[in-house]
Amino acid sequence: MKQPLGVILAGGQARRMGGGDKALLPLAGRTMLDHVRDRLEPQVAGLALNANGDAARFAATGLPVLPDPVAGFVGPLAGVLAGLDWAAGQGGETIVTAAGDTPFFPEDLVPQLLLAAEGMAAPLALAATPGDNGKPQRHPTFGLWPVALRDDLRAALTGGLRKVVQWTDAHRAQTAIFPAQGLDPFFNVNTPEDLEHANRLLEGEI
């Protein structure tokens, strides 16, 4: 199988941050997007950004900017579909997605997702961490997605489906479990307080 392409999901509305682009917020002297890109880009064959609105605000990144193909901010599955359509045009077979507000995700995200989905005709896997109740806590914006299922996903979204795990469970998605001792690798920045915490982590104050 070809190395997956990567898609950073930054298409949300950031309501708890007061709106705007969380991915462009300053974090330890750079943007949060820079930190996310540094982790994902070495793991994939090419990289794009899922974001809505004026793409010019991301021009400095040099990345392709992919708007949701389904109107109305319907959630991360729309960003996944945007990535799958882009990958199809690149001749790709799979994509791996990462959230644009999660700067500490594992540097072995892609190989672990590939390992979890090994042997599947349409490789599909979500990242997870151990849950308090012994059941893995899935992180549905971090996944391996097959281009072969993009039309199925489009039909599901058109039909009103919005929950990631509802669609992934229907296709028997596998789970890649990552340790979460100490810092949760999937800690995401939702509030100004989260941003301050992330700054302190990156600057070695915690």
Rank of each mutant, 00 (worst) to 15 (best):
Val36His: 09
Leu40Ala: 13
Glu41Gly: 10
Pro42Asn: 07
Pro42Leu: 05
Gly46Arg: 00
Leu49Trp: 08
Leu49His: 10
Asn50Phe: 12
Ala51Trp: 10
Asn52Gln: 06
Asp54Leu: 11
Ala55Tyr: 10
Ala55Asp: 12
Ala59Phe: 11
Ala60Tyr: 15
Thr61Glu: 14
Gly62Met: 11
Leu63Lys: 07
Pro64Ser: 09
Val65Leu: 12
Leu66Glu: 10
Leu66Asn: 08
Pro69Ala: 04
Val70Thr: 08
Phe73Asn: 15
Gly79Asn: 08
Gly83Arg: 00
Asp85Glu: 15
Asp85His: 14
Trp86Arg: 04
Gly89Tyr: 07
Gly89Lys: 03
Glu93Val: 00
Thr94His: 04
Thr94Tyr: 01
Thr94Leu: 00
Ile95Leu: 09
Val96His: 03
Thr97Tyr: 10
Asp101Pro: 10
Thr102Leu: 00
Phe105Lys: 01
Pro106Cys: 07
Val110His: 05
Leu113Val: 08
Leu114Gln: 15
Leu115Cys: 13
Ala116Arg: 09
Ala116Glu: 05
Glu118Ser: 11
Gly119Glu: 03
Ala122Lys: 00
Leu124Val: 07
Ala125Val: 12
Ala128Ser: 12
Pro130Ser: 09
Asp132Gln: 15
Thr141Gly: 15
Thr141Glu: 12
Leu144Gly: 03
Leu144Asn: 05
Trp145Asn: 00
Trp145Tyr: 11
Val147Asp: 02
Ala148Gly: 09
Arg150Cys: 02
Thr158Ile: 04
Gly159Glu: 14
Arg162Asp: 11
Lys163Gly: 00
Lys163Asn: 11
Val164Phe: 14
Val165Phe: 14
Trp167Pro: 01
Thr168Cys: 11
Asp169Cys: 03
Asp169Val: 06
His171Ala: 00
Ala173Asn: 13
Thr175Pro: 03
Ile177His: 06
